[in-house]
């Protein structure tokens, strides 16, 4: 007979494969990549009891769909298909937030496109849970591709979603421009927030990441040996950036994960340990939680009744 096994029966076989083989066969074709696609669910952010999830659509599937989930009421909605799906789409990233009046939740989607000449452009569309539709933003934002990995972590503060934009140095030129991209969820406009004016030496070899620290915008500059914690005491006032403290430990700090309301920092150390760091005593406390640096995240969560009846939000 020698017919090939049809797709619907293929699933019967694939679910019986060991994980290692299943992942290897993602390279067979885009269809065989699908089982992995559904595995890589990533939390975009959480606010007002809603958790926004997206597929970690690494290069291959820019048309990733978003999910909004309320774990308390055990309901979720899958966002409709996005409208920007060009042939030259390269990668897409989702953001999630609520306006300052906390009445209007929106998802913002960046699509990076690469044309035949290798030129990158960014297109943006916004999904409103209230109108249940996508709307394209015309001439919204200009980003280079080097900026995209930083979009994986966002900070929502006072109705504005923030991402750290770090342009990659090109060639030997170590100059790079870093800033915080801000998206006002209510007005749907983009802006920039300036980073602190670093002392001489700049941020050339340091790793930057942004955080919410005591209801203010914070930035951590890590060199591997130490981490400087900065906070912007007055929103959008560059001069108000203040260095709170420097974290220096005997062990290597892989990642700063988050800041607790108490002001303590959550750190991912070598050997995959998660610890709480107290800046007063300079001591760490082991939490007994283990994970690779890229698997440890913290999101604020409060219960709410939103999405209790699904789409009628």
């Amino acid at each position: 007979m020698s017919n090939y096994v049809p797709t619907d029966l293929l699933i019967e076989i694939l679910v019986k494969l060991p994980v290692k083989s299943l992942i290897r066969f993602a390279a067979v074709s885009k269809l065989w990549f699908l089982p992995l696609k559904s595995i890589y669910l990533r939390i975009v952010d959480s606010c007002d009891g809603l958790v926004c999830l997206s597929n970690k659509s690494f290069m291959i599937f820019p048309q990733s769909r978003g999910v909004i989930w309320n774990p308390s009421v055990r309901n979720h909605v899958v966002l409709p298909d996005p409208t920007i799906n060009p042939k030259d789409a390269y990668i897409s990233v989702l953001g999630f937030g609520v306006d300052a009046g906390r009445t209007h939740h929106k998802v913002v989607r960046f699509v990076y496109c690469r044309n035949a000449a290798g030129i990158f452009t960014t297109r943006v569309e916004i999904f409103s849970l209230k109108t249940w539709s996508w709307r394209r933003l015309i001439g919204g934002v200009d980003l280079t591709l080097g900026a995209y990995p930083s979009l994986l972590r966002q900070v929502l503060l006072n109705g504005v979603v923030h991402w750290l934009i770090e342009e990659k140095p090109i060639g030997d030129n170590s100059f790079r421009r870093s800033y915080i991209l801000a998206f006002d969820v209510g007005d749907e406009v983009f802006g920039e927030v300036m980073l602190p004016e670093w002392e001489a030496g700049g941020s050339g070899f340091a790793k930057l990441s942004i955080f919410l620290i005591n209801e203010s915008l914070g930035v951590v500059k890590s060199t591997g040996e130490s981490c400087d914690v900065w906070v912007m005491k007055e929103y959008c006032v560059r001069e108000s950036w203040t260095k709170l403290y420097t974290i220096r430990l005997f062990e290597k700090i892989e990642n700063v994960v988050a800041f607790l309301n108490s002001g303590e920092a959550l750190l991912a150390l070598e050997n995959s340990r998660l610890v709480v760091y107290d800046s007063e005593t300079k001591h760490t406390k082991d939490l007994g939680i283990y994970g690779t640096p890229s698997s440890l995240y913290m999101y604020n969560y409060v219960e709410s009744l939103l999405l209790l009846r699904g789409r009628t939000y």
């Binding site: 090939y4 096994v5 293929l10 076989i13 494969l17 060991p18 083989s21 290897r24 066969f25 390279a27 067979v28 074709s29 885009k30 269809l31 065989w32 291959i60």
Partner: peptide, 19 residues
């Protein structure tokens, strides 16, 4: 299939590589 290569799977299942 467990230890087979990607190429083997494509041949045996008649799958066209669309990457």
């Amino acid at each position: 299939m467990e230890k087979k290569s990607v190429g083997w799977v494509r041949r045996k299942f008649g799958i066209e590589n669309d990457y």
